[in-house]
Amino acid sequence: MLKIEKLSVRYPDQTIGIDNVSLCAKEGESVALIGANGAGKTSLIMALVGVIPSNGNVFADNVKLNKDNLNEIRNKIGVVFQNPDDQLFMPTIYDNIAFGLRNMGMNELEINARIETCLSLLNIKHLRNKTALKISGGEKRMAALATVLVMEPSIMLFDEPTAFLDPKARRILLSVLNGLQHTKIIATHDLMFAAETCKRSVLLKDGSVFADGPSKELLYDVQLMDKCGVEAIGACGREIY
């Protein structure tokens, strides 16, 4: 379970990134974070794992985020970045996946076993010894997902997971995400993807929660979405008054 209480983020130039956000995602629930560019989706995700400083409370499985337990929190919450290249900085895909586990202090035998399971689950065993420079965007996305999934977090945060993906890779990712039983927060502009993966959506505007409700209602509400600068599903071609 992920619980956020009155979370605020201010950037060094004092601009407000996140303003008093409170929300709760139950165990196994998938929540879509929707908002225009600059609405605060990425900032919220980064604040949840303590990468950027924030005020307010974050609880991951009832453990409160603070400076002393960042290690524990980051083992519970996994983040898949918007650009998979940011997560693939080691020479081979295997090393990239092993990076987090080695930091956890796990022995090589256990690391190997976990990686093999994860590669099989995501159907990317063929990438094991390849370098990130030589694989496709879809494969990079899967490899980046594997780097987080292998750490067995209970909560997973996705920042624009469909960015850089072609329709086929998007479809594969969709089925993989729907197969995961984790609590998931998915920040995305791809409303169809949000509707297909999350029953609940949270609409952000200027760093605050503007609306929170079932995806099948919220994502199709043209007027509501328009107020946040987002184009609702099916709104394309319609006139909005």
């Binding site: 980051r74 083992n75 650009n83 940011d86 900085f89 990076f99 930091n103």
Partner: peptide, 13 residues
């Protein structure tokens, strides 16, 4: 951003 990704997987700690 790479450093943030490293931190998210326990690098600094």
């Amino acid at each position: 951003r790479v450093y943030q990704a490293m931190k998210c997987r326990g690098y600094a700690l």
